[in-house]
Write a protein that binds this DNA or RNA. Structure first.
Length: 513
RNA sequence: GCUCCGUUGGUGUAGUCCGGCCAAUCAUUUCGGCCUUUCGAGCCGAUGACCUGGGUUCAAAUCCCAGACGGAGCACCA
């Protein structure tokens, strides 16, 4: 009886038990901790705030995974806000906006709304003007270094007590672009003697000479800093819960000063630590990946060696497998290591039942010992292994033997010894050839004969792209008859996604064992 | 230097608020067994953790103090 049949049957016999079952399941399903004070809000409203300075690496998947899962948990609302307010040092990549939204879609989530900070400068300017009226901001022409020195010793800078009229004039000049980069900033007046130096009078707006890459925003020169922009937007978009990294731990306190000036209430905040992923040599940073691609060390964002969402996607790993692993990490504020094996286990679980089997003999590549072609005599002309060992109804593959087969070097039997060619039968090595013995399966059960995969010597050539580099080999003929994008399990090798069958050799991407 | 935060097996996580049901949960990994014409899956089993030292208590992973270790911020980056 299948699970759904069991359920139906139970519903007939004891409806109240089904409810119990549901309640239990619901409890089990909640893998994320409750958000704080959810009851105090009509709707849980959250935002993800990516910087579109490049496509996403794997760590970036945590944001939509966790926020999206909370959205589902609370039937909430999710905004995607591109925080693209630095046209210079974190210069936006015009393609990244869509690439990021595609990645979110791949992970199985959809934002309820998408906005770009660079469309909203006038909103930020208006709030700055209001803040100046409230006595909460001042224009400052100190050099960064000079201000830092004063700030660290708890001294106010001479510009702090300017009258608001002057501040307004100077701010309007900033907006008009009449200062050069570095000449003038607008600071939020917090508490210059606050015991935490990180909270003392922070910059809200600065001048940037480099035009924004988006045409719509190219004329602006006066740009808000993250703490100001993000704080204003969170309030205006009605965000109730902010979930972000520990690098922004002090932001809530900094922005709290602005909220106090405006009489706003700060959202609930959850901070999580950094996530590192094992199994990669390449550091998980957008800039490092860009460098590696430019240097030719990686073939692109979807190179199997790149720790990116695009890479896992090309390898045939489902977004859901990534999301589940990310959600399992929880929202702890300490740094965590995500094991790729966890993503692999999730994915295997999802695809194993529906993935057809095939043979691939690896001949050359990292950690590959080589392959050997050996003549075969006796036995049938072809082997007919099942398409899927658990599903006989899916039929059998047809793998011709053609007088010679290829074996991985490690599978070649010693002279006089036997191996079982999967789907074909038992053979013994005699004078450099493999001779069918006619033994039945009992010899395998007895543990005397290893079972190995093999391929016809003239089978299609395959290039398998892996995290460790490219592996070439020979497959059974049926492999190139599939559609591209199909997942296959190369027996004793691992799962792979067929990528390009028109090229020679045909290309597949290795997913995981 | 100043200020915050954290520390449960290899990895992640539950439990910590409100001390006892915790000789500590679940997942993954690793290893073994069964099954299986592979690997995987499935089933069974094993290994493996409360940062350290004090204190409070009948009782501490949980409360208190001190320390160690780790992380983050103190940017005209996000």
């Amino acid at each position: 009886m299948s699970a759904s049949e069991q359920r139906e049957r139970l519903a007939e016999l004891a409806p109240e038990k089904v409810e119990e079952l549901d309640a239990e399941e619901e409890e089990d399903d909640q893998i994320l901790p409750d958000l704080p004070n959810v009851d105090e809000h009509d709707e849980v409203r959250m935002r993800m705030a990516p910087n579109p300075n490049g496509p996403w690496h794997l760590g970036s998947a945590r944001m939509p995974s966790v926020i999206g899962t909370y959205k589902e948990m609370y039937d909430g609302w999710m905004l995607c806000r591109f925080d693209d307010t630095d046209p210079e040092t974190k210069r936006p990549d015009l393609d990244a906006y869509d690439e990021i939204l595609e990645a979110v879609d791949f992970l199985g989530f959809e934002p309820d709304e998408v906005i770009k900070a660079s469309d909203r400068l006038d909103v930020y300017y208006d709030h700055a003007r209001e803040l100046i009226d409230l006595g909460g901001a001042y224009t400052c022409s100190c050099s960064g270094e000079a201000f830092s020195d004063m700030k660290n010793s708890g001294e106010a800078c001479p510009h702090r007590d300017k009258d608001s009229e002057t501040v307004h004039e100077e701010f309007e000049d900033m907006v008009a672009g009449e200062y050069e980069s570095g000449e003038m900033v607008l600071r939020v007046k917090t508490d210059i003697t606050h015991k935490n130096p990180a909270l003392r009078d922070f910059v809200a707006f600065r001048m940037i000479d480099t035009p924004h890459p988006r045409e719509e925003a190219a004329e602006y020169r006066c740009w808000p800093m993250l703490d100001f922009q993000s704080g204003i937007d969170d309030h205006l978009t009605g965000i109730t819960h902010i979930i972000r990294g520990i690098d922004l731990q002090d932001s809530a306190k900094r922005q709290g000063f602005v909220y106090d000036y405006f009489g706003w209430e700060y959202p609930e905040v959850v901070h999580w630590g950094h996530v590192q992923i094992d199994a990669y040599d390449v550091p998980m940073s957008t800039s490092t990946i860009i460098e590696k691609i430019e240097a030719g060390d990686l073939t692109g964002w979807d190179d199997p060696r790149a720790p990116t969402i695009a890479s896992l996607r090309r390898r045939g790993i489902r977004g859901e497998a990534i999301v589940d692993a990310m959600v399992e990490l929880g929202t702890s504020s300490s740094n965590v290591d995500l094991a790729m094996s966890s993503i692999y286990a999730n994915n295997r679980d999802m695809i194993d039942e529906e993935t057809d089997r095939a043979f691939l003999v690896r001949e050359d590549g990292p950690d590959v010992e080589g392959a050997v072609t050996m003549p075969v005599s006796g036995g049938p002309d072809a082997a007919e292994p099942p398409v899927h060992p658990n599903h006989e109804d899916r039929g059998r593959r047809h793998v011709p033997v053609d007088d010679a087969v290829m074996l991985e070097a490690g599978d070649v039997p010693e002279a006089g010894e036997r191996v079982w060619l999967k789907g074909f039968g038992c053979v013994r090595r005699e004078d450099g050839a493999l001779v069918a013995t006619g033994d039945d399966l009992d010899v395998v059960r007895a543990g005397d004969v290893p079972v190995v995969h093999w391929a016809p010597a003239d089978g299609p050539r395959i290039r398998l792209r892996t995290m460790d580099g490219d592996v070439t080999g020979v497959a059974e003929p049926g492999v190139v008859e599939y559609d591209e994008d199909t997942m296959l399990q190369f027996e004793r090798v691992g799962f792979a996604r067929l990528d390009d069958l028109d090229s020679d050799p045909a290309v597949a991407y290795y997913a995981h064992p």
